[in-house]
Simulated assay, not measured.
Amino acid sequence: MSADLETFYEVIRRQGITRRSFTKFCSLTAASLGLGAGAATEMAQALETKPRVPVIWMHGLECTCCSESFIRSAHPLVKDVILSMISLDYDDTIMAAAGHQAEAILQETREKYKGKYILAVEGNPPLNEGGMFCIDGGRPFVEKLKEMAEDAFAVIAWGACASWGCVQAAKPNPTQATPIDKVIKNKPIIKVPGCPPIAEVMTGVVTYVTTFGKLPELDRQGRPKMFYSQRIHDKCYRRPHFDAGQFVEEWDDEGAKKGHCLYKMGCKGPTTYNACSTVRWNGGVSFPIQSGHGCIGCSEEGFWDKGSFYDRLTGINVFGIEANADKVGATVAGVVAAGVAAHAAVTAVKRIVKKPENVG
């Protein structure tokens, strides 16, 4: 298939969607992206007037978990993204075409929409032995990646594989698997890390780029600030337990049953930037920490080479610069004990010193 001149609004009206539902969609989408009050109107105008954007989705060394996450998006539904908002011209995982037919579509889109299509990349290229560890259509993937990036408007790096290299690039990295920003130097790249990224984060990035025709504001590592500006720790519902020095010490202990902080069990939430604790997973139902397992930091660079997922972080301060989880826990216990002792002392004094009786 190829992108035509239809806009998103024209497509959904042909599908029987009302103007009211379209306006509601724009409002909800703008809110989910954390945009300003006037963004819904701007979004509606863009979707009414701009043609759908062609998207080329390529796969290198990866496990397809990003695609599996993407198709489970609930806000917006992935069917609306694929069938109405964008024109997914090439994705060898879900497209009907295969072999020479698929390769022809890839080249046709590149030539017809030069400088206008988005290149979405899932996975990364291995560079060792001329890229021969990943062959796509009879050619090294790294060659096709460079070729398709040359005429793209922008590049999206899906997941930890494309953003950082992920487990393929773990030491000793025999294939020399490499993040795509080390290969593509002349195009803007949006990194959407995670293993996999959250579905709504993926569709949110696509929605923003296709609606406004520009990249979202990125942090210094190339990640969209709207989703990666806060640590998971900052909005975690277990954060009050961390601040109170209440930690799970062993799996299935009383602290675990009470929902205490998982920091001592290796949770990487204090050093991981992602939207897991706000957007959450499975349509906003839960996320790993809520399910009883600590964050493994999968959206951070090199998470696979930083030891066991159950090793505790060191140097995470709580109340004071010199405080750590152990000291805070001990301090809180001491404060509670002192408080109990003080209360007992005051009660005893009140019992001994009675109020003088009034003398007539």
Results as ranks from 00 to 15, higher is better:
Asp151Ile: 06
Val192Cys: 08
Glu143Ala: 05
Gln176Gly: 03
Pro193Gln: 15
Cys195Trp: 12
Glu143Asn: 15
Lys185Ala: 09
Lys144Met: 10
Ala170Pro: 01
Ile180Gly: 00
Pro126Gln: 13
Glu129Trp: 15
Lys191Cys: 03
Gln168Val: 11
Leu145Gln: 07
Ile184Thr: 05
Asp181Cys: 13
Pro193Met: 13
Cys134Ser: 08
Val167Gly: 08
Glu122Asn: 10
Glu150Gly: 02
Tyr208Ala: 03
Glu150Ser: 13
Ile190Asp: 09
Lys144Asn: 14
Cys161His: 06
Val206Pro: 05
Phe133Trp: 10
Asn173Met: 13
Gln168Ile: 12
Val167Phe: 09
Ala162Gln: 13
Thr178Ile: 06
Ala154Tyr: 01
Gly130Ala: 06
Pro140Ala: 13
Glu147Lys: 11
Pro126His: 10
Ser163Asn: 05
Gly137Gln: 12
Glu129Asn: 15
Phe212Cys: 00
Asn173Thr: 12
Phe212Tyr: 08
Val155Gly: 04
Lys185Ser: 04
Trp164Asp: 07
Val192Arg: 04
Phe133Cys: 10
Cys166Asp: 01
Gly159Leu: 01
Cys195Glu: 02
Pro197Val: 10
Asp151Val: 04
Val155Tyr: 04
Pro197Gln: 13
Ala157Asp: 03
Gly159Ser: 03
Leu145Arg: 13
Thr211Leu: 07
Thr210Tyr: 00
Lys146Glu: 14
Ala162Gly: 02
Gly137Phe: 14
Glu200Tyr: 03
Asn128Ala: 15
Val167Met: 13
Cys134Pro: 00
Lys146Ile: 12
Gly138Pro: 07
Asp181Glu: 15
Pro188Leu: 05
Lys185Gln: 04
Phe212His: 01
Pro125Asp: 12
Lys144Tyr: 07
Met202His: 07
Ala162Met: 11
Ala157Gln: 05
Val209Asn: 06
Ile135Val: 13
Ala154Leu: 01
Cys166Leu: 07
Val206Phe: 11
Glu129Pro: 05
Thr210Glu: 05
Pro179Lys: 09
Ile180Pro: 00
Thr203Leu: 08
